[in-house]
Nucleic acid binder design. Structure first.
Lengths: 205, 205
DNA sequence: AGTAGGCTGCACACCAGTGTGCAATGGAGA
DNA sequence: TCTCCATTGCACACTGGTGTGCAGCCTACT
C-alpha cells in the first residue's frame, strides 16, 4: 500500500541526488504528482529529506554489515561492497549530496552509521596491511566512497532519465563502470594494481 | 587600488567554497562590509561569481601550463602541480563547489580550460604508461583533482576561520596533508606505491 | 448507489534573498 | 577648508519557495 508515498520517495532520491536544492515542486512534478500531494505524506521538506536519508542509510548499512561480517579479507570485502552497491550507485549518491545541501547539518548525524562501517572496513584493511596508511581510516574511507560515486556519476550517463525511474538496466557501460570504479578505488586504497585486477577478475584489458 | 573589491573577492572565494549557496549578505558580513556595498562593485550575484571563477581559473591555468611545459614526466609534473596548488587548496575548492551551485550551468563553461589542461596532463601520463588506463583521461583527471581537494577539506581543519581569512599558515598538518594528498592521488592515477613515495620524498613513515 | 480516502487545484500568508534608489556620513586628498 | 567618492543605512519592489486551508473530484471498495 501507499504506492504514491513510495514513488515520491523513489523519485526524490533521484532528484535530490542530482540537485540537493531541488524544491518540492521539482520533486512533485518528477513524481507525476502535484505539490500539494507531497505535503499530504510529509509535513515538511526536511521531513521528506530525513525519511529519505534514513531509508538510504538503512539499506547501505545492511549491505555494509553483511559484507563486513563475511570474514573475507578487507580488499575482497571492498570489492563485494562496490559490486553490491553499484547497480544503484546513482541512488545512494544522495548520501554525498545531502551533506552539502541546505540543512546538511541536520542530516549529517543520520549518516554516522554508514561512515562508521566504512571506516571500520578500511581500518581492518589497514591493520592487516592490505590498505595503505597515508591517511586515517576515516578520511580514506570517505574519499574512496566519494570516488566510486564520482565515477558512477560521470561514466554511466544515467541512461534514460525520463518520467519513471524504472532502473532495471545494468547495461554494458554499467558493468564497465563498475570495473573501473572498483579498480580505481582499490588503487587509491593502496592495493597493488596486480592484486586489484586479480580481485576484480582479470578479463578484458 | 580598489582594496574593498579585492577583499570582497577574496572572502567570497572562501565563503562560496564552503557553501555555494551563501547569499550576498553572508559574503558581505564576512568581508566586513554592508550588503549594499557589494552591489556597488558587482551588478549581480552571478557577476560576482563569474568574476571569481575567472580569477581562480586564471591562476590555476597559469600553474598548470607552467608545470605542463616543464618537460618533466607526467607523474613528476603532477607532484609539482599539487605542491604548487596545495597551499591555497581551500581557495580553489570553489571550482568544485560552484559546479553544483545555483547557476553551475553558467559557470561550467568557464572551467573548460582547467579541465582541459588537467586532462592533457593525465593523458600524457597514460600515453607514456606512467598512469593507469582504467578510466578515460577526462574522468580520471577530474576524480584525482577532486580527491586532492577532498583531502584538503578534511585534513587541514582550515585553521582559524574567524573574521578575516588571513591564511599565512602552511602549518605542520598542512605539510602532512600535502604529502598524503599527493601520494593518494598518485596511487589513484596508477603510480606504484614505491614510485609514489620516491617522487614525494621518502622521509618519515 | 453510496461512501471514504487520496489526489487535485486553486486560494492564501509568510519568509528569505535579490536588486535598486536615495539621502546621509565620513575620510582622504586637493 | 572644501570636495569628491566610497561606503553606509535605510527604503522599497519583486521573486521564488514553503507550508496551509478548503472545496471539488475521481476511484475503489462495500
Amino acid at each position: 500500500m501507499n504506492e504514491t508515498r513510495d514513488r515520491i520517495l523513489d523519485v526524490a532520491l533521484d532528484v535530490l541526488g542530482e540537485n540537493p536544492d531541488a524544491g518540492m515542486g521539482d520533486i512533485a512534478s518528477a513524481a507525476g504528482v502535484v505539490r500539494r500531494t507531497i505535503y499530504g505524506h510529509f509535513p515538511s521538506r526536511l521531513d521528506l529529506v530525513r525519511t529519505l536519508t534514513e531509508r538510504a542509510v538503512t539499506e547501505m548499512t545492511a549491505v555494509l554489515a553483511e559484507v563486513n561480517a563475511s570474514g573475507a579479507e578487507a580488499d575482497a570485502a571492498w570489492v563485494a561492497f562496490i559490486a553490491r552497491v553499484w547497480p544503484v550507485a546513482h541512488r545512494y549518491r544522495v548520501l554525498l549530496a545531502l551533506r552539502r545541501g541546505e540543512y546538511g547539518e541536520a542530516i549529517h548525524g543520520l549518516l554516522g552509521p554508514v561512515d562508521e562501517l566504512l571506516a571500520d572496513l578500511v581500518a581492518r584493511g589497514q591493520d592487516s596491511d592490505v590498505f595503505a596508511q597515508h591517511l586515517s581510516a576515516g578520511i580514506l574511507s570517505q574519499v574512496a566512497y566519494g570516488v566510486v560515486f564520482a565515477i558512477a556519476d560521470s561514466d554511466l550517463s544515467d541512461g534514460a532519465n525520463g518520467t519513471d525511474g524504472a532502473d532495471g538496466a545494468d547495461g554494458m557501460n554499467g558493468t564497465r563502470g563498475a570495473r573501473a570504479a572498483t579498480i580505481t578505488s582499490l588503487l587509491m586504497l593502496g592495493v597493488p594494481e596486480a592484486r586489484a585486477i586479480a580481485l576484480v577478475g582479470g578479463d578484458e584489458p
